[in-house]
Structure formats: C-alpha cells, structure tokens
Design a protein around this nucleic acid. Structure first.
Lengths: 219, 219
DNA sequence: ATTGCTTATGACCATATAGTCATTTAGAAG
DNA sequence: CTTCTAAATGACTATATGGTCATAAGCAAT
C-alpha cells in the first residue's frame, strides 16, 4: 500500500463523482501519476491559491488544454488529491487496526505513533502536503464537503481512549471526545516536529509521548 | 491595555523601521484605527493572498492612492498588523508576569489559561486573526524576519515549567523545551475550541487542562 | 487512403489585483 | 487672496492566472 500511486478502482469511483474526467482515467498510469505527484508537491509548497495551473502543466509535461480536459476546474484538482489521500488514510488506518496485536492502550498509541513516523518517511519529499491538508481542511477557502481527514485520525485515537477506559487502564472521569482530541493534538505536534528542523530520536520521542500522556508532568 | 487600539509610540517606531510612512503616523487616530481594524478582520477571514487592497480601502473608507502612501506595499500592511499584535502580546505577557501572585506552577497555568480566554473574548469579532497569525507565522509565503509570536507564548509556558521543576512540583526528568511545547500546544488547542463551534464551560475546561496535564490519563 | 473518434495544444479571453501617478483638494501661513 | 505643503484621489498600467476553444495530431478500423 502506497500513498504515492493511484489506484484504478478509486479513480473510476472519482470519475463517477465527477471529480475527474473519463479522459483522465484512460491516460497512461505514468501520466496520471506525474500529474498527481506534481499537484501534491505544489499544493504542499504553495497552498491552494499559490498553485498556478500553468506551472503544474509545465512540470507535469502536459498542456493547459489537456489539464482542463482532465479536471473540470482547479478546485477539482484539489478535491482529487484530497480524496486520494483520504482513501489512503482510510486504508492505512484499517491496516493498523487489523495488524495490532497489542492489547494495552499505551501499546496501541505507541504503535500508532510509530506507524505515523514511518508514514512521514514515506512522504519524504511531500511532507508539506501532509500539513497543508490538515490546515486546508480547517480554514481553507475551498471547502470540500463531506471530507474531514482529521476525523479519520481522531476517530481512531478516540477508539483507543475509549477502549482504555473500558479495560480500566485509562481513568474514566475524562470525556472521551475531549481526551481524544488532546491526545491527537499531541501526537500531531510531535510528528510536526519530526517534519521540522528539530530531528528527534524516534524511540525517545515515543517514550516521551506515552509518559507525558499517561503519567502527566507532576513530580 | 487594549489590542485593538494603536499606540503612538509604537507607530513612531514602525515609521523608523520603514513599515509605515510618516504620512500614516500623522493621520487622525480614527482613520488609523479604521485601517488597522479592517486589515485585521480581512487578513483573519481571507488570509494574506485573499485580502484585496481594493476591498480594504473601500471598507476603511480611504482611496487606493492613499493606501500606498501609508504602506510601501501590501506585505508591509501585514508586517504592520503583525508587529502591533506582537507588541500587544509582549505587553500582555509582561503584565500577567507581574500580576501573578500564585506560586504553584498549576496555578500559574490556570491563570495563563484564564487570561487567554479573556483575551479571546477581547478579540470577539477578530478571532480568526488570532488563528491566522499563528498559522501565518508557520507556513506563510510572506515571512517576516525576526518575529515569532508563538515564541513569546511558549517562552512563558517554558518559564512556568522550568520553575515548577525547580520547586519540585513538576518532574525533573522531562525536557523543559519539549514539555513547554506540548503544554502550549494543549492550551492553544483548548482555546481553539473556545473559538470554534463547541462552546465549553470555562471553569471545567480549565480544570480539565490542569488535571490532564499534571496527572495524565492513567487510571 | 479515408473516416471517425480520442487526445493534445497553445493562443486567446476575461478578470482580478498590486502598484503608479498626474491631478485635485484641504488647510495653514503670510 | 496667494502661496505652499501635505494629503486624497481614481483612472491607468502591468501582470498573473483560471478557463475556453478552434485546430491539429494520433490512432484504430475499414
């Protein structure tokens, strides 16, 4: 499973939703991927407004006329990459849900964190896109109805918290939704640091996260 | 002390730095404030690229020619509002540093949080600007050298953490900088919720914050 | 070679918008 | 009233950019 290559079935689905044209679907995989990769990079670096269709065409090696035969408009291009990413996230979460053998909530959170770090490596060159997506979802001019990337992620964290409360590992006097929100926030913040200038040792950060979250800062 | 009105001395300073013209400084306070308020609102709602100078002029009741006699360019307008906000933040932090009588770190954090909530009320109509500022500082196309709003805030949180470690109230095996970062993140996240649709009871949220931070989520 | 369908192309259009400038207006001083 | 300086104005320019369209190219089938 790779976030950086397009799935035929997904594209067929997006054609049905009117996000991309059938012409796009019929293109060679190479050309489709070129457009996708360039779009991700440029959105990540320049944001929605900042991405110029002309530049994208030049970098992807297609003409402007072709672009608008693939996508009804620029906002559809954003919708396209967001939905592809969304699909990837969903599959990724399903996978880690299945694979996890750990029972304890703290182990599951560790696993989640590790998996995220691995993902951040996967997005090496496109790491800004990850940040762009979440911030775009919150306060972008272009709202894409029915999609909330944060939600996938937060749902899963909540799931862990809730389970921990049930098994008695996590205190029950906390609101699951709120705690899930804060925990997701912290995890995201640490990942953001991995992306940033400050490179941290993965193992230590993970232990830090767990200790901070579970034991608190009290002496 | 109010974030929404301009200080004469600060403006004189900004003239020296070339951020605004002397012509702007000599305007009536009313006119200056109109431009400032409209700029804050429009930047907050539409972001840097989204703010159209034409619209700003119309809403502030000035002509476009005048605008460019006040500010060398649009980016200087952003620099202007950011620096005014920065100055406000610095004075606000100095004030709460002086006023706090509490000794314990948890009391200081409570106080900080309360103060922030009060501030968020102050910014009622311009709350989006608050969010814009922090996100703009992180990944805006326009970088304003030497300014980091987050820094002020995080410095203060770190100060509290460090003090708590010294007095033995906060465990000493944590990295002050990292813990400060995470604590600031959580506080910001809670404030963001206050801004958002989910209106929370202030007192409860505050207790939640402290309990979450100090005691952790372990049962 | 011809036909017919699909894809590619880039000049062109409409619009938005940052920034300019010659001219006008306001107000103070003499 | 005249003069001088500072401030206001909006038409205008230059440029960027999303989107269109008529035409060309590719290619398969007959």
């Amino acid at each position: 499973m790779n976030a950086l290559f397009l799935d035929e079935n997904l594209i067929a689905q997006l054609v049905r939703r009117g996000v991309v044209s059938d012409t796009f679907r019929r293109l060679t995989p190479d050309k489709k991927n070129r457009v996708y990769r360039v779009a991700i990079r440029l959105f990540g670096v320049y944001g929605y407004d900042g991405l110029a269709v002309d530049q994208l065409c030049k970098e992807a090696g297609i003409s402007k006329g072709s672009f608008f035969q693939y996508f009804p408009s620029k906002s559809h291009l954003l919708e396209f990459v967001v939905l592809v990413f969304d699909d990837y996230l969903a599959r990724w979460l399903a996978e880690i849900r299945q694979n996890e053998k750990a029972v304890l909530a703290r182990d599951r959170l560790s696993y989640l964190y590790q998996s995220l770090v691995v993902n951040s490596r996967l997005f090496k060159d496109d790491e800004r896109f990850f940040l762009f997506i979440t911030s775009a979802m919150n306060h972008s001019a272009v709202t894409i109805e029915g999609i909330d990337l944060e939600h996938h992620f937060r749902d899963y964290v909540e799931e862990i918290i809730e389970r921990g409360e049930r098994t008695g590992e996590i205190r029950g006097d906390f609101d699951v939704e709120m705690t899930g929100y804060l925990a997701a926030l912290i995890i995201e913040g640490l990942i953001r640091r991995q992306y940033g200038d400050r490179k941290l040792a993965q193992r230590e950060t993970e232990e830090y996260l767990i200790s901070f979250l579970f034991d608190g800062i009290k002496a």
